[in-house]
Nucleic acid binder design. Structure first.
Lengths: 192, 192
DNA sequence: GGTCCAATCATAACATCGTTTCGATAACGA
DNA sequence: TCGTTATCGAAACGATGTTATGATTGGACC
């Protein structure tokens, strides 16, 4: 009974897509429920019915962002262990710079709920596994996989974050090489 | 002519202090002009007269935050070159964790104006100088001071940022040791 | 010393935001 | 056919950033 639902999974995906597009093109300041709803040809009520809240819409974008990042890292794992690890590192920066506003949302204070943090940890796993593969093959040693992976994550996130904030000088090519250099240096520190 | 000014430098400092207190205790979401003005016993007009805008108030907090950070890093420079460099690194984390919301404001997307970025660069100089001292004394080698300093900054900022986001496990003591370990590892990579 | 005047500020109005309420709508069972 | 009930769009509400308005104040001038 009742009338047919139009607040369905398809609309949810459309809202998420429009919100992501708006975030990407105009930044987090332009993310208003009225604009997102209008872009998806619906009313603001849809957001409350499908997400519950603006914060929960942002959390959904946060979760989606980490899921995409995790898949991008997994896709990058190819070749010999050390080579794959380097590829994962470069893919991390590529994903972040492709959607800097989303990246800012993912790491920008928004206190993540317990399950949201779980998604972030899941996105982190491809890196841990890649490090573990290097440990197993004897290409790396000295610390456990999680410790080394956290360290590499910090280097990557740190440099990317400074770069997005405009605090790293040089041309795009120079910054890319600087990132590759920093990554190599960090990996070299764990060679046998 | 006219009446006596009450929107003076003292009120400006008071507004900045109250805003910082509010940010520190309740986060960026609680930073409303009406609350800040009420805490400083004035009206919202004062903010517009003294800062021009809410964004410019936030920018002033951003600038103040980097200035404090720079002073904290400068204060930490003591002892032999390598020892001083390590102290600067540990002081960086201490300053960030002491005011995580402010730290988030400083690195959280807020597109910094050209002169605001200059302040951030200035805060970064104590680290560059500390690295340069190590290069001059022969304790470090292999890259120029700015490159090494940027790398160390990335490691520090990355780990601190992940820690604030709740993405680094372990107790506070374990995280402190993990940070010290990462810092040491990053410096060791540049030993002669 | 009284009167104007211009600078200065507190108050109130405005547009917009997130959120909630409410009446209109539309399918299903009787 | 009709009533019931889930569902939705529009409008209302409080709060926010911002701007306009009018009251207030202290010196300048006669």
């Amino acid at each position: 009974m009742g009338r047919v639902k139009t607040y369905d999974e398809a609309l949810r995906q459309r809202l998420l897509a429009e919100a992501a597009q708006l975030l990407s093109s105009e930044g987090v300041g332009a993310l208003t429920l009225r604009r997102v709803a209008a872009l998806a040809d619906t009313s603001t009520t849809a957001v409350y019915s499908l997400f519950g809240d603006k914060d929960q819409l942002l959390t959904a974008m946060y979760v989606d962002g980490f899921a995409r990042l995790g898949r991008a890292l997994t896709r990058a794992r190819a070749g010999a262990p050390l080579e794959a690890l380097g590829s994962v590192g470069m893919a991390y920066r590529r994903a972040a710079l492709a959607a800097p506003h989303l990246y800012g949302l993912m790491f920008g204070g928004l206190a993540p709920s317990a399950d949201a943090k779980q998604v972030a940890d899941a996105a982190f796993q491809p890196l841990v596994e890649s490090v573990q593969t290097c440990l197993d093959s004897g290409d790396l040693r000295g610390r456990d996989a999680e410790t080394i992976a956290t360290y590499l994550w910090a280097v990557s996130h740190g440099l990317v974050s400074l770069e997005i904030a405009g605090l790293v000088g040089g041309s795009l090519r120079a910054r890319t090489e600087g990132y590759r250099d920093a990554l190599t240096m960090s990996i070299v520190g764990h060679l046998p």
